[in-house]
Each structure stands twice: as structure tokens, then as C-alpha cells.
Design a protein around this nucleic acid. Structure first.
Lengths: 197, 197
DNA sequence: CATCTAATTAGATTTTTGTCTAATTAGCTT
DNA sequence: AAGCTAATTAGACAAAAATCTAATTAGATG
């Protein structure tokens, strides 16, 4: 239909607020099936019409629903496209990392992460040592602190971020972010990591 | 990693409630970068520790964050997998339609939609006339009531649900759900639709 | 024009949620 | 054990949000 830009903090928050309510979520469910008039929806959800109107106004503000008028009946329908594109872009790492723009502690690392991740996946391992370390640090952080992973399990987790899992494993060991013994891998405490692989 | 079952109404609502808050969303942003102690997060967000603790408890309940303890410092980290799988399954049509289970008006149509849609896409056009009509009805409802679509635009919208857009277009015309003239398509009011194609 | 209908807006009330301070717990450290 | 530190729990208070009734608007119809 049309692409929506990646939503920013305020947008995302507003979006969650809109959906974080029992009545509104039910309304969306109803509207996913077909259009409904305000009257109908009020009856189905056992709410008064003004209440429904109020909820629809919120959803309309965010373009999650659209309205058409026939005589003095207002028919609402869901804007699937808005919903989908929102949920799609929502939880990719580079986007989540961007959430903290205002707070941001280590802006430098965030910037690197954002630039190397795309649609939730690592495009390529950075060539420079410093950047590579940032990316690896983030990745190793996706693993459980105390768990011992079989190689297969480790691959499972890693391949969700990058195809070349063998290189990732090797780099982890190189930086001493992980250790291996008899086919099992586990994380090392951060103080033990090396600066150079 | 592991598959999560499709969340149901209560789960989904709880999930949105968890994220529909400025502080919690920022926490998630922070934790997406690396693990943090409660103290750190309180400082970064300019909140008191009990407040942060309280928010983390909510996120922990939903397994969105995990905690590891070192001495008496608690380190929290994000459970990316939970977040991702939640957002992924979230807004597929067959799931949204399922939201209204308790309310449900036309359970029969919903059931059909759920069974023919998978991951947001139409698996195949039902063979039986009655079922096909339900699916087409839903699809045509994704279009703007009053807009006139160029064939290309129409395809754009439709292909997001099904590859064989030519058949869909033909069926719409057949059921008189849409009309065409000089390469332009538009929706017909529901009263004009035919029962048989 | 008077009246009816469906919806929205205004304003009041109640419920839910976020934040704080104070008190408590759990785990060191001396 | 006494004291220290980081976190959690309890409870109070304040702010935000949901819902209702009443009043108003917009459009249709006799």
C-alpha cells in the first residue's frame, strides 16, 4: 500500500497506549471482521455509545481505524495496513536500541548497532576491531549468562541474527566472551573479555 | 530459539499494557543495548529505585526481561526472543479476528477466516462458494470505500494477502463486490453484491 | 419546521496506574 | 554480630484514563 517510516518513541508509545485497553482491543477485533456502526459496537461490547465513540476517536487519531458516513450512521473499519506496518517494524533490535534516544548512555555503541543491524539481522560483521567488539558484545548479551549451550543450540540462537554462525562462535572465543569445552559453550564474565581477538 | 504459541486476548492485552508506559518503554530500550542494574536504570531514567523495581516486576511477569544476581546487585536483561515472537504473531488477520472470541458475533465467518489465513496471508481461495464469498468479503473490506484504484494500486494491496491477484480481481468483479471501468476499480456497496459469482 | 435518530462533545465520577517515602529483606564485609 | 549496600515490598498519594449521564450537533423525514 504505502510504506510507513520507522516509528519513533512517541509514536510507538502512543500506539501501545491505544491498544492497551480491553475495550479498544475488542473493538479492533470486531473491526477486523467487517465494518460496524457505533451503535452495533456499543451493543456488542455492552458499553454506552459515548464510551465507544471516545475509544474510536483515539484509534482514529492514530489512523488505526477509518470512518465512512451513510446518512447519520458512522461506519468504522480497520486500517489493516497501518496495523501491520506498525507491528512489523516494531521489534527489530536496531529499532529498539533507538528507543532511548533521549536517555542515551553510550550513544556511540547505539549508533554502531543501528548501522549494522537491519530488519533485526546483522548485515555484516564490522571490519574494524572496535566496532566488531560492540556488535559481538550485543550478540553475546542475547545469551543466557549461566547456561551451557550445545553447539547446535548456540547456532539456533545466533542464526536468528546472522547466517555465518561459525564466524560468530569463533569470534566469541577469540575475544574470550565465551569459552568452549567438549562441545559446550558458555559466557564469560565481562571483566575477562579481551580487547583484541 | 523456541516457538511461542499464538497469544490470546488476555496475554496480548497484558503485553500491550506492559509496553504502554513511558518508563517501561525506556527501560526496554536500555536493556536492548546491554544488561543494567536497578541502580543504574534508576539514575538514567531519573526515577527512584522502588519505581524501577516496580516496573521491572511487571516486565518480568511477562517474561520480557530476565534477571541474574551477582552479590546483592540484580542485573536485568531483555528477553529478545519473547519480544520478537510476540510482535511477530501479533497482527496477522487470522489472529486479530480471533481477538473477539468472547464477544463474537458471527463465529462462523471468523472460523473460516482463521482457517484460510495463515501468517497474515490467504493460503488458498476456498472452493465452496459460501466460504469463498466470506474470504472475498473480508479482502474487499481492506480497500477504501470511496477510492478508485488503478489496477497496479489494487494489486499492491492484494498481493500482501495472496499471490494470485488476477483471480482475486476477477472474483471481486464476479460477485459484484467491485466494478471496473477503463482500468480503474472501485468498491460497490454491499447491498449490490451477488451471492453467486 | 418539528421531530426523530445516530453520533459526538462536555463534564462528573470512579477506577487504574505511576511514583514516592518508609520499612523490610537479602547478601556481603569487617 | 553490627553495619553496609542494593533491592524489594508496603502503603500513601497523585495523575491519568475509562465510563457514565446530560447536553449538543448533524442529518433525515414526516
Amino acid at each position: 500500500m504505502f510504506l510507513m517510516s520507522i516509528p519513533h518513541f512517541e509514536t510507538l508509545l502512543a500506539f501501545f497506549k491505544a491498544l492497551a485497553n480491553e475495550s479498544r482491543l475488542k473493538l479492533i477485533g470486531l473491526l477486523a471482521q467487517r465494518e460496524h456502526s457505533v451503535e452495533e459496537m456499543a451493543a456488542l461490547l455492552q458499553l454506552k455509545e459515548p464510551t465507544v465513540s471516545h475509544h474510536l476517536a483515539k484509534l482514529k487519531q492514530l489512523k488505526l481505524v477509518e470512518m465512512r458516513q451513510d446518512k447519520n450512521t458512522h461506519f468504522y473499519r480497520l486500517n489493516q495496513a497501518a496495523l501491520q506496518s506498525m507491528s512489523k517494524a516494531m521489534f527489530t533490535p536496531e529499532h529498539i536500541v533507538g528507543l532511548t534516544a533521549d536517555v542515551d548512555t553510550d550513544g556511540w555503541e547505539s549508533k554502531i548497532l543501528r548501522s549494522y543491524f537491519e530488519d533485526g539481522r546483522l548485515r555484516e560483521l564490522p571490519a574494524s576491531r572496535k566496532k566488531r567488539r560492540v556488535v559481538l558484545k550485543w550478540l553475546v548479551n542475547q545469551l543466557d549468562q549461566d547456561r551451557r549451550y550445545a553447539e547446535k543450540e548456540l547456532n539456533q540462537v545466533l542464526k536468528q541474527f546472522h547466517a555465518d554462525v561459525a564466524t560468530l562462535r569463533r569470534e566469541f572465543i577469540g575475544y574470550n566472551m565465551m569459552q568452549r569445552e567438549r562441545g559446550r559453550y558458555w559466557r564469560m564474565p565481562e571483566v575477562e573479555w579481551r580487547t583484541e581477538a
